[in-house]
Design a protein around this nucleic acid. Sequence first.
DNA 1: CAACCGTGGGG
DNA 2: TCCCCAAGGTT
Length: 341
Amino acid sequence: MRDSKVIAERLLEWYDRHGRVLPWRVPPGGGAADPYRVWLSEIMLQQTTVAAVKSYFERFTGLWPTVDDLAAAEDAHVMAEWAGLGYYARARNLLACARIVSKAGGFPRTREALQALPGIGPYTSAAIAAIAYDQPETVVDGNVERVVARLHAVETPLPAAKPELVALAQKLTPQARPGDYAQAMMDLGATICAPRNPACGICPLIDECDAHRLGIAATLPRKAPKTAKPNRSGIVWVARQGDGLLLEERPAKGLLGGMLAFPSAGWDGRDLPPPGQADWREIGEVRHVFTHFNLSLQVMLGELTGPAQRGHLVPLRQIDRDGLPGLMRKVWDVAHAEIVA
DNA sequence: CAACCGTGGGG
DNA sequence: TCCCCAAGGTT
């Protein structure tokens, strides 16, 4: 019990001096955090690096300063702005959540009610409750798992170790400054207690760390071995007609769900024919790595000789590369180079 | 509960 | 080049 108090105190003291300055973070003494900005940043940060999120967060808050603004936005606009960030279910859930919250007149304040909203799970609900509402909820993300596993030298591999790590993290959570404490744990994990080369020499918790004492800090947390990624392949068609290219909206669920894309087949469980009649010729190949498989796509280019079977034509100058998911940006780059040439 | 779901950067 | 992984959630 006294141990946890020392840890929280040292961590907060370190955070006050070395905490990161981030666009969604209220500096010490800057007043209460805006729940909308906390929520938005937490959704964007799910499995995504701080560096990647920054520009997206600035753009979203510029376009939609409040949850009511976001709730009123058009689906396609939000999806296009999210393009490139990945995990597109987050964007769909983001809009669904914004509309529920806007209609309700604001975000709920309890962790339980927050977690009932789409896209908000155990981590995010605790983070919002702690950071925006100053409630002593225990926030457990990948950083906290690592810090706690090291502090207590937990050698059980993840994900089996998760319940144990959550229980240990709960015992460490202080009643005072829960939001700062949560962010301090994550900052420590991101900057000092790093996955590969932990900077134990400058860690404020070095005296409390069992793993460091045992000389095994860098090896924790242990993780179950991963299975190899299979290779998949398929075809993507860039269909021209007049000065336009054929684009389609992907099915709402599944890979790149709800995103704008060139018609494709053979790699995502759909085995569709070409989107129209044309003298197709291969102009290149695109490789892409998804979470659970590697992909190689043959890029076909052709001038439609009849009506398009699916999708809609978009004038070349009107196609927004930034509004496409990463995979389709690669396809666009190959096709655009060929068309311009 | 294990599989599914993106992308870019770093060692 | 390859592997790891980053403020996870949903089904």
